[in-house]
């Protein structure tokens, strides 16, 4: 009897472990393509959590399921079960194991978070806050930046910093050109395998810069400039979405991110610099100005969207169509 129990438990554990490892591998397929250095780290962490979570879920649900199958009261059995009120050893074990697990998970997450800083920027978010902690934490790290990174970021590229302007409801990207020219675009172009520094600002309300393929997100706060740094690693076109609810046309506030070779990026920037600024298509303004909405029920009054942004470069394709 005892032997049978041990064999059953060992067998169940092996099966659960295999199922968990399989789920952990499946987890990678649930994400958009890995297009930044940070995304690989995050996907590995998520896969680990999925495997661990699957094991715990199967353990709890399996035990309950076992009870449902094998511990049912007979139709006319009105007796009670054994009056077991607890088991100190078992209770200590199931307090200690979760405690150890969360320490492990938190430590692993902490390590990934640090690594994200090492791989990409030293500090992913650098808030300009007039607090003392900025000097204590952020400044020294910023100073050590150029030495610690082997491929000196965006060296030779004219636009190390790109200013991101968010407003209700448009994204405008500002590239510094020669002679202080402000080259503007409604599409975010980035050179691949280079560290990107964004300066995030908002004209009105909270917005959120979110690029799922990069697994990165940062709220944008009015009256603050937030530095945001990362490294795209895969050429392609990706989606940038507003992730912090910003009012009526929030869902329409999307833009494309084009990651291209440094050469292509350079020529795009040179081309954009020579274009005369013109109004870009803006989904929010377009919908607002359309007298009869396509919707069945008319809405309430809204904050009017800003007029379509006037930029040097705007993609020919409407920014609300799916990425290529």
């Amino acid at each position: 009897m005892k032997m049978r129990l041990i064999v059953t438990l060992v067998g169940a554990t092996i099966l659960m472990t295999l199922a968990s490892l399989w789920m952990g591998q499946q987890a990678y397929t649930w994400f958009p393509p890995q297009a930044s250095a940070e995304s690989e780290l995050i996907d590995d962490l998520f896969s680990f959590l999925t495997a661990l979570g699957t094991f715990i879920f199967l353990g709890v649900a399996g035990t309950l399921g076992y009870s449902v199958l094998f511990s049912r009261a007979g139709r006319y059995d009105y007796s009670d079960g054994p009056p077991i009120e607890g088991n100190i050893t078992l209770e200590i074990v199931w307090t200690a194991i979760p405690f150890a697990l969360v320490i492990w998970i938190a430590a692993y997450s902490y390590q990934v978070y640090e690594q994200m800083d090492v791989r990409g920027p030293m500090e992913m978010v650098h808030l300009h806050m007039p607090a003392t902690m900025e000097a204590a934490y952020a400044e020294p790290m910023d100073d050590s930046l150029p030495d610690s990174l082997p491929d000196s970021p965006t060296a030779g590229l004219p636009s190390a910093r790109i200013a991101v302007q968010a407003k209700q409801w448009a994204w405008i990207f500002h590239y510094p050109g020669e002679n202080g020219q402000d080259i503007t675009s409604t599409e975010l172009h980035l050179p691949v395998d280079h560290r990107i520094k964004l300066e995030l600002t908002s004209d009105d309300v909270l917005h959120g810069l979110y690029i799922p393929a990069f697994r990165l997100k940062q709220d944008i706060i009015p009256n603050k400039t937030i530095d945001f740094e990362f490294t795209p690693t895969r050429i392609g076109t990706y989606r940038l979405r507003d992730s912090q609810y910003s009012g009526t046309y929030f869902a329409a506030m999307q833009a494309d991110v084009v990651v291209e070779s440094p050469q292509a990026y350079q020529s795009w920037l040179a081309d954009a610099a020579n274009r005369a600024p013109s109004p870009a298509y803006n989904r929010a303004a377009f919908e607002y100005n359309r007298a009869a909405e396509q919707t069945i029920v008319r809405g309430w009054e809204t904050i009017p969207p800003a007029p379509p942004p006037i930029v040097n470069f705007a993609p020919k394709q409407a920014p609300d169509s799916p990425p290529v």
Binding site: L49, V60, I105, Y113, L216, K217
Partner: peptide, 25 residues
């Protein structure tokens, strides 16, 4: 209880800062 265990697991995932930076909001 089973649903809660599932929610608890996704809750731990959300508690992990790097994962949350992707799935937040």
């Amino acid at each position: 209880v089973v649903n809660f265990v599932f929610a608890g697991i996704t809750g731990i995932m959300l508690g992990s800062v790097p994962v949350d930076i992707h799935v937040n909001n």
